[in-house]
Design a protein around this nucleic acid. Structure first.
Length: 708
DNA sequence: CGCGAGGATATTTTT
DNA sequence: TATCCTCGCG
């Protein structure tokens, strides 16, 4: 390994070489976090003699995991190291593959994504004939995730919600959902973590086995860890294993999903003799960019102060632009790209356009297309969520896990078998009557399906089952050739024909791409088909980024969330409009929400190395008149263009207000409420409707009206 | 089964 | 303001 003292600064060196049992690294944006993490792992192996297999590094994306593995192997100049670099979810999937018989699951369990969840809940609502007027699917899923993650079982929920009609129905759905998953040997993302914790809690000897395999656990992006992930980490660490955590509290952007910022803040208090190191020198951005970032984040009150600095020059001025409308704003962005692009030093791939919500990409796309600039959107419809890919996955899931009714139904319905809703409902009902899985029902009645279904349908179902049996057997005998087997199957039984008939050329390409990925994965010695199917279900939008980034010259478009952990020479943060960024919901909800939005904007700014362009636009949207984001007013900078209301002295509250403690107000969504107190333009309100309870709101917001 | 009218609905989404 | 989804009809 290189001479670490030469290539690392003092703090980084201390972090890499620390021998503390518990180490917390607070790493500011661009301070060399990934570098420190990889060198630390290399150091543990090379200098301190740890077995690679005794090291577990946890990241939040598969992409980050690959990157860390590659960099460690490169640093040590070694081939494949037997260390574990995984996401929380993929590591749990691995544990469960070995241990889930303790929960009466087979190791070929299916992992379901959010689309699958929605479909399941939808079917439950229909089947149970639940009055679904006000019941939104997404609300149900939120509710289920919420209860689950708090370890509240459906049984308990059913009891406690008696008397509350609405909540009781949600509890019924929750119960049916859990039953459905258990019956079909399915696990959702939350289950992966929760079931692992459950097994460890109930089977101390199993936990001990996993603890003993490890000696040192490192966790990246620790600021976004939630309570159960932390619990799992503590279990794996036990009393003896060492822990290193790395994170930046200013970059917590997933609290809406359970991330608990207190975990990183209190880590040093909860672990005895924990060493804490702060990395504060930024190596990524120019001085101007860093100044803006620092100024912005200093507006957060609920925060530990930090002094992020750089030795770099001030660099280019920050550009800001206020356009009349969204189209003009998009033109501004694209014109700047064209001005800078020279095809020699600056390429299209050096530009990233970031926005708050996926829906904002349309105007930019339009203009980029007009000017003939190649671009790529990340995180829109993800590869693994495409219909044709989900069909392939359903084939794999069903053929390896015959009790997976969900995949069975998908295949029967979607793969051109001439079977519609009526027959599908019949199949479900019949299987339920016989109290067996759909596969069993059809297989048991293979020769008398005519008694159950109409002629055409019964013949179709018969051949479907025979096909699946063939696929199942082939996978069993030659799992390593699963890619070839699937490819043959799709040709032989008309799936490709169906796509050709519908002129779905791009879908055919995608299927080929998928089968190639399968081949590459299965080529590895220890890789199994179960593992492939489960991993595929854990893929995400960031996983596409790497391959394209290196070679092709595309402008990249993505949400700020997706851009986390990435960096680009030139960054546009587009659509800085009040109620979009910060988003309207967080404006209404609470001060914590605004602070999270501010952290999100901070993440956006700190992606930039050389140039930063901020823009906003007026015009109308369904929310009404668009106004520049408050965040633009919070930063003072030497701007190239300052063309309207952001100039000093023009700052004023959005609307005058005379709401104070004791006022009776009416909120468009929460209804009537009484103001408890008023401070800094914010009001604490108790709403009449106990559903909403007590909230902190922005007093001047247009959703709030004074009654008296 | 496919189409159009009309109603609902409107973040972010590492897994 | 736009888009997406659903439902009803041909």
């Amino acid at each position: 390994m290189e001479d670490l003292k030469k290539i690392l600064n003092e703090r980084q060196y201390a972090a890499v070489t620390s021998t503390s049992k518990y180490l917390r690294i607070i790493a500011g944006a661009g301070s060399g976090k990934t570098r420190v993490l990889t060198y630390r792992i290399a150091y543990l192996i090379d200098n301190l003699g740890y077995y690679p297999s005794s090291i577990l590094a946890i990241t939040f994306t598969n992409k980050a995991a690959d990157e860390i593995r590659n960099r460690v192997e490169k640093t040590l100049n070694m081939g494949h190291l037997h260390m574990s670099v995984a996401t929380f979810h993929s590591y749990c999937a691995r544990i469960l593959r070995e241990e889930c018989k303790l929960l009466n699951y087979p190791s070929s369990f299916s992992i379901i994504d959010e689309d699958d969840q929605k479909k399941i809940v939808k079917d439950i609502i229909k089947e149970k004939e639940i009055e679904a007027k006000d019941l939104k699917i997404s609300t149900c899923l939120d509710y289920i995730a919420n209860k689950k993650n708090q370890w509240i079982t459906p049984e308990v929920e059913l009891k406690t919600t008696k008397g509350n009609f609405f909540k009781h129905q949600e509890a019924i759905i929750y119960g049916a959902y859990e039953d459905y998953l258990q019956k079909n040997h399915m696990l959702d993302f939350d289950d992966l973590i929760l079931k692992t914790i459950k097994i460890f809690t109930e089977n101390p000897h199993v936990l001990e086995k996993w603890q003993n395999r490890l000696r040192h656990i490192l966790v990246d992006e620790f600021q976004d860890v939630d309570n159960n992930q932390f619990k799992l980490l503590c279990q794996l660490a036990g009393d003896d294993n060492e822990i290193t955590v790395v994170g930046d509290p200013d970059q917590t952007i997933y609290t809406w999903r359970g991330a608990n910022i207190q975990i990183i803040l209190n880590f040093n208090k909860n672990f005895p003799d924990c060493e804490s190191i702060a990395l504060e020198e930024n190596y990524r951005s120019s001085g101007n960019i860093l100044n803006v970032a620092n100024q912005l984040i200093s507006h957060n009150h609920n925060r530990v102060k930090k002094n992020l600095f750089t030795k770099a020059d001030l660099g280019c001025d920050i550009s800001i632009y206020v356009a009349d409308n969204e189209i003009k704003e998009a033109e501004y962005v694209v014109n700047n790209i064209l001005d800078l692009y020279d095809g020699q030093n600056i390429f299209y791939k050096d530009f990233a356009i970031l926005y708050r919500a996926n829906s904002q990409s349309a105007p930019i796309e339009q203009i980029l297309m007009n000017r003939g600039i190649k671009y790529k959107i990340y995180g829109g419809i993800r590869f693994y969520r495409r219909m044709e890919i989900k069909d392939c996955i359903a084939y794999l899931k069903f053929a390896t896990n015959l009790s997976d009714d969900f995949s069975a139904l998908r295949l029967i319905e979607n793969t051109g078998r001439g079977i519609g809703k009526t027959t599908l409902d019949k199949i479900k009902a019949n299987a339920q009557t016989e109290n067996v899985s759909i596969y069993e029902h059809l297989k048991n009645n293979l020769d008398n399906l005519k008694d159950f279904y109409m002629g055409k349908q019964s013949a179709s179902l018969r051949s479907f089952i025979i096909q699946i049996q063939e696929l199942h057997d082939k996978f069993l005998f030659e799992p390593k050739k699963a890619n070839v087997i699937l490819d043959d199957h799709l040709h032989k039984y008309g799936y490709f024909d169906m796509l050709i008939a519908n002129e779905m050329d791009d879908k055919i390409d995608n299927v080929h791409k998928f089968i190639e990925q399968m081949r590459d994965f299965l080529m590895k010695d220890d890789a199994t088909l179960d593992e492939f199917v489960q991993n595929v279900s854990l893929m995400s939008s960031q996983d596409e980024i790497n391959d394209q980034q290196a070679t092709d010259d595309y402008v990249k478009l993505m949400t700020v969330h997706t851009a986390k952990g990435l960096e680009f020479d030139n960054v546009f943060v587009y659509g800085l409009v009040e109620s979009i960024f910060p988003s309207s919901r967080t404006i209404m909800e609470s001060i914590d929400g605004i602070e999270e939005e501010r952290r999100l904007f901070y993440v956006a700014i700190t992606r930039a190395r050389k140039r930063l362009f901020l823009s906003t636009s007026g015009g109308y949207s369904y929310m009404g008149l668009r106004q520049p984001s408050r965040f633009l007013k919070e930063i003072k900078f030497k701007a190239q263009e300052e063309n309207i209301a952001i100039k000093k002295g023009q700052d004023k509250p959005l609307l005058p207000t005379n709401i104070r403690a004791g006022s009776l107000i009416k909120h468009d969504i929460f209804g009537e409420g009484i103001v408890l107190n008023e401070h800094d333009g914010l009001i604490d309100v108790v709403f009449k409707d106990p559903k909403f309870g007590r909230k902190t709101l922005v007093a001047s917001h247009k959703f709030v009206h004074l009654i008296k």
